[in-house]
Amino acid sequence: MIFAASLAAAVVIVVLSATALALWYERKLAARMQTRIGPQFVGPIGLFQPVADLLKLVQKEEIVPMGADRVLFALAPPLTVIFALAAAAFVPLWPGVAVVRSDVGVLLVIGFGGLAMVPVWMAGWASFNKYALLGAMRAVAQSISYGVPLVLAAMVPVILAGTMDLDGITQFQATHHWFGLWPIIPGLPAFILFLLAMLAESNRIPFDIPEAESELVAGVTTEYTGMQFGFVYLAEYVHTVVGAAIGSVMFLGGWDGPFAPGLHWLLLKTLCLFTFIYWIRWTLVRLRADQLMTLCWKWLVPAGLGLVFLSAAWNQTGWSR
């Protein structure tokens, strides 16, 4: 129990520092894609920029708008970070070790991912601002819609490995093949589907309708200032980092890899997925709200149902063992 508790503390610290690094990394990456240099003055090659951002945000004035629900307004931003962090507890870090190894890990991870929408809605409602409310509405509608393909895509590794334990899924991949690679037919499309749904759940481009600044001012964060805004911003990155980690656990073999201990491989795969997600972010444009819903319900949900069928059929053939 003491080991698990200290591991929990370590996971919080590691995820938050990884997120701080990710903030810097993403800005550098974006800058390079746009032939800019990006942050470079704070620390070596601008590495301490997130720290400087934090120090700046902490010193800013916090404004509570008139008519706002003060309790919900203050509570929502820290909760977004807390819930986004919670899913990290179930990620297997190296063989057999996670903060919590649960038989229903996949469901819990998806559940905490969905729970992260509650504070977003709280923030939108409490702000007493039309645009914040509309942004929250869109965020929740989008998140629950894409929850369906997410659940269906995550079912493919569960069926192939025959377990809902995240570490069990990784173990199966380590002794057989990574599901992103083999069986290629339910595996790779399911991975792509999972990635798309995860992007939509963490409101990343091309699915960042909830913060479409040309339509909604700044969506949920419109009335937030200083560190309160910082929390919502941070939570999005935490969500993406944890989501990338879960994606690599479920489809890319997690800690499995030659030469180096497990954690290195998990971090490397997470970094690769994270890079891919931000590559998409700085390449594609935003979808329209109705296109977003059409894509989800008319393409991804039927595709997800088909993939579950295919993976069950693959399982029936008995070639996976």
């Binding site: 129990m1 508790a5 929990a8 503390a9 919080v12 916090e62 903060v99 919590v100 200083g226 309160q228």
Partner: peptide, 28 residues
């Protein structure tokens, strides 16, 4: 077995509260 999740949530909560309070103190 799920107690560590609660611990993780509490640690994250304490951290966020501390930053929030600090921001409340430092901000004009």
């Amino acid at each position: 077995p799920y107690l560590p999740v609660l611990i993780l949530l509490v640690i994250a909560g304490v951290m966020c509260t501390a930053i929030s309070l600090l921001a409340g103190k430092l901000g004009p």
